[in-house]
Design a protein around this nucleic acid. Sequence first.
DNA 1: AATAGTCATTGATCTAGCTCAATCTTTTTG
DNA 2: CAAAAAGATTGAGCTAGATCAATGACTATT
Lengths: 256, 256
Amino acid sequence: MSETPESKVIDLKGLQIACQSCGLHELCLPMGIHPDEMDRLDTIIKRRRPLHRNDFLYHSGDTLTSLYAVRSGSIKTYSLTGEGEEQIIGFHLPGELLGLDAIHDGGHHCSARALETTSICEIPFEDLESLAQEIPGLQHQLFRLMSKELQSDEHFMLVLGKKTSEERLSNFLISLSTRFSQRGFSGTEFNLSMSRNDIANYLGLAVETVSRLFTRFQNAGLIQVNRKLIAIKNLEGLNELAGAKCKKVDKSIVLR
Amino acid sequence: MSETPESKVIDLKGLQIACQSCGLHELCLPMGIHPDEMDRLDTIIKRRRPLHRNDFLYHSGDTLTSLYAVRSGSIKTYSLTGEGEEQIIGFHLPGELLGLDAIHDGGHHCSARALETTSICEIPFEDLESLAQEIPGLQHQLFRLMSKELQSDEHFMLVLGKKTSEERLSNFLISLSTRFSQRGFSGTEFNLSMSRNDIANYLGLAVETVSRLFTRFQNAGLIQVNRKLIAIKNLEGLNELAGAKCKKVDKSIVLR
DNA sequence: AATAGTCATTGATCTAGCTCAATCTTTTTG
DNA sequence: CAAAAAGATTGAGCTAGATCAATGACTATT
């Protein structure tokens, strides 16, 4: 985690991609701020060498020093239950900010771990806060990003609150699809960087249920599953499942 | 909703309680800012006449103009599912801020409705944002409040994600108890301003299940239920239930 | 005070999804 | 490359909680 340049073959200079030239700046912190202000943001952001699979970005209990933006790869966040079981809170894709939930009391209450090789921009929070004090657009964007996360948490609470396993999984797949395409990747064909176990844990289901659902969805022609690779074949159908709340007219009957 | 003073017998002047003298300022927006800055905050905050039970604070689809802080009473927020059913997102107690999730795209995605007679401070968002630009403590407190909400949303996701009905309801009761005592009310005896239906909806359970659980909890000596009035008799026991994740050692056996 | 309407409780049954168990596949390690 | 470990799938049965149904209690209206 140290910043000693000599300890690596990797050209750290090459990692110093500016926000300006980053394909994610329309989603990320720099959104809506002027080019010269973006330069100031760049001066506080640290680009570190990539994390490998299972590397920790931070641990539960760590003091909050920085926020982190995913540049490529993916991260899962989780906390441990009373009995020491992992409980997954979220999966974070490129352009998404981590650590916002730690601002409140200055400490992380969950751990963040790379699901695959992942590069990260580190943004020291104190610096960011001072900069936000000077750049109205940055303050606004920070409010917007936090608000967006509140919104998506609320959406997920709705999904968990009432929905059947079918609704949960279809919502999950749609969410991934949407987020991938917003980030310039294919929304119809993508890799799941997390295990079936992680998915089940996140959705509050048993692994077996998730596995069965994948087969069912595939048999119904909604998706094509090949190990970690998912191809969405019928987004419309998935959407119907995702919104299904009818008790009487059982839409899921097509899947039997 | 208009501000015409002559249309009411209520002394609107009397409603103009300053943040300074408000018992909630340690929890609410003014926390951590200096007295003279608090005065500036006071100048932008509008105190309106109280909402009555079932009055709307805002509707889903409304443009975000203000954030709202609950001064007394309680508010529920909910959105409508595809099939037009109400899905409750949260219950908001005195000192809590509403509308933060609307900053992202400037519009409310849920409706907010009073559960009982409720007074509200209205804080025009644009004014608040400008003020936060000038008062670092205010910017920081806004970040903190949003972060706190993220944290509690995450906690609730954990509860919904895996937990049994017993765990869900005990978590709910503990959350209310904690929040009431933080606000200077009794944490061991309080009124539920929401219906059993609302509770069930919020927790993703059937009304009947909630009702049965109340009786079970009462029989186990954990709580005393009298209609809307709840008395916590054994907080320790509730806490155990709330954290229960053991599959083998079934703690809930005591309740049968 | 009577009536209608809403809200809450209790009982009986049914089912979605969990648990347990076995097999198969992929990844890791020596 | 083989062995071991981890992850994924599939099957069979069980259970927590949903649904359906009926009754009881409180609230509001006239």
